[in-house]
Design a protein around this nucleic acid. Structure first.
Ligand SMILES: [Zn+2]
Ligand SMILES: [Zn+2]
Ligand SMILES: [Zn+2]
Ligand SMILES: [Zn+2]
Lengths: 138, 138
DNA sequence: CCTGTATTGACATTCATTTTCAATAAGACG
DNA sequence: CGTCTTATTGAAAATGAATGTCAATACAGG
């Protein structure tokens, strides 16, 4: 069944399944280090190197989203196939996926206007979710 | 004249002027390491630590723009005060500043729609400029 | 000039990510 | 099943950006 899920010369190993499981369980952005730690906690340990390699492969295959945190560390998340952006709460990390036809159009227009082609873009939104923006300390 | 250019307790040193000069000369995004190398080449050497410190201070004071390159390294550029985004050529690095009222509006709307407040955003465009998109090897 | 304090920079340190490479396991074939 | 080929793993070392340390130095005011 999973005919095109396993590119030629790609084997199915305990480690890869473990990383995929972890990504499914914590449906949220996590760094490679964090996932490695999480797996270790579950008793389902996977070498850090392998976590990095697996995530890189998944990102390459567009099976996960990668964004750069402000401190430069990459964080990964299992991701719906189609193109979209993220609205992330800077307090609790809650993430909402957002489709942005508006931005896509804008990006293309701006590029054309300046003679640029093959435009790609990075768009991330950061804010405070409803829960986290309450005045606090009741 | 430059009354508010030098915050209280900030001295004017050869090193700081050198970094500012460098930023003025290469009117383009450069990493701290690259600027350090550039200054060393000009014979106007400045310690790497100082380059980092100076850039951080300038960024803090909104005198330079900072963006995260895809490899996670921070790159800096002398910057016009008002808020804007960048359209960068992935080949030659040519940069165009772009004002994006469209995106600002979209970002605010999306945030509101999901109950988020205090929205900030990251928007960068990457493409090929006219020169670099020619079929090549003429 | 003198002096107090901000600043500098060589060096050490941290920490994410990558590289190395010998040991291991997946999967094909008989 | 065994066997063999090759992808995969992971511990340890290497890389490289960024930050911390701290004694030496230079700015600026008096
Ligand atoms: Zn929140
Ligand atoms: Zn988009
Ligand atoms: Zn903007
Ligand atoms: Zn170009």
């Amino acid at each position: 069944m999973a005919s095109d899920r396993a590119p030629v010369g790609r084997r199915s190993t305990r480690q890869r399944l473990a990383v995929l499981d972890a990504l499914a369980e914590v449906d949220d952005f996590r760094s490679a280090q964090e996932l490695h730690e999480y797996l270790r906690g579950k008793g389902d340990a996977v070498g850090l190197t392998t976590v990095y390699r697996t995530l890189a492969a998944l990102a390459e295959a567009d099976e996960v989203d990668v964004i750069l945190r402000e401190d430069g560390e990459s964080i990964y998340r299992r991701c719906s196939g189609s193109h979209h952006h993220h609205l992330v709460c800077r307090e609790c990390g809650r993430t909402v996926e957002v489709a942005g036809p508006t931005v896509e159009t804008w990006a293309a227009a701006v590029g054309r206007e300046h003679g640029f082609t093959d435009i790609r873009h990075t768009v991330e939104l950061i804010g405070l979710c409803r829960d986290c923006s309450t005045p606090a300390t009741s």
